[in-house]
């Protein structure tokens, strides 16, 4: 399958007092279309920084990111934003729904931002809500939903424009195990059925086990790459054993 996301020698440094801290130290990767990749690491390993750079939310100190053929890391803020709008979808740990919009309006947000009336995409919105099991709550507001339901809305929103790549940053971090599993099942389903390319950042092995491939990050570098393949059972034992050999 063609490569849809590439990163070459990504370096990210932040100023800290009189010196600097290096969050990423020369990371390179390639993700194929339809692939589900997980980035694992402990807190402070640089995994979230990596996701932010891969999604064009931030610029690397050096290195390059290419999304679907577009060198996003060389673009100015305006063009980077537009590329992000066209080619990415995000799911964050805190669901970050717009509290004053309904469920349907939240899902339609990418269209609205693009100046596209939501009515033109009614069927797509309905399809997504059905996919996440919230078709009967289209007119509810976020504060009328449970935590799991809110995260499902966030997922539907991220998939609304069928983005080239969906980036999820600890999407289950704020959910209980059962609810989190529902979210991971939906992510996997979209990758498997819809051939959605997904990059998941997580510190939890049972979440990373949903991926086809796991990149282990430590101290700003990729420590190891573990190929799990597309598996319906999402068994984490192999991954956990492998992580143990890495001392994680």
């Amino acid at each position: 399958m063609p490569v849809i996301l590439e990163a070459h020698d990504l370096v990210k440094r932040y100023p800290l007092g009189e010196g600097q801290v290096e969050a990423l130290n020369g990371i390179s990767l390639a993700v194929e279309r339809g692939e589900f990749v997980a980035i694992m690491g402990s807190s402070g390993s640089g995994k979230s920084t990596m996701l932010q750079l891969l999604g064009g939310l931030d610029l690397p100190t050096s290195g390059e990111v290419v999304i679907d053929g577009v060198r996003i890391s060389t673009l100015d803020d305006e063009r980077r934003t537009l590329t992000r709008r066209d080619k990415t979808g995000f799911v964050f740990q805190f669901f970050n729904l717009i509290p004053l919009l309904t469920v349907a309006e939240n899902v339609a947000l990418p269209f609205l931002i693009a100046g596209d009336p939501a009515t033109r995409h009614r069927s797509r919105i309905d399809e997504l809500l059905t996919m996440v099991g919230l078709a009967d709550k289209a007119n509810h507001r976020p504060d009328q939903l449970s935590a799991g339901e809110q995260q499902r809305v966030a997922l539907a929103r991220a998939l609304a424009t069928s983005p080239a790549i969906l980036l999820a940053d600890e999407p289950t971090g704020n959910l209980d195990y059962t609810t989190g599993t529902e979210i991971l099942d939906l992510l996997w389903d979209s990758a498997d059925r819809l051939e959605q390319t997904i990059v998941l950042v997580t510190h939890a092995a049972h979440a990373a086990a949903y991926a086809d491939r796991v990149l282990v990050v430590r101290d700003g570098r990729i420590l190891d790459e573990i190929a799990l393949g597309r598996r319906r059972d999402h068994d984490a034992r192999e991954l956990i054993a492998r992580l143990a050999t890495l001392g994680l």
Binding site: E78, R84, R85, F90, P99, L109
Partner: peptide, 16 residues
């Protein structure tokens, strides 16, 4: 601020 950051993440430009 978080809501605005989400909107920006989803492609809302500075002008928007």
């Amino acid at each position: 601020v978080r809501e605005i950051a989400i909107l920006r993440a989803h492609g809302m430009t500075v002008g928007q």
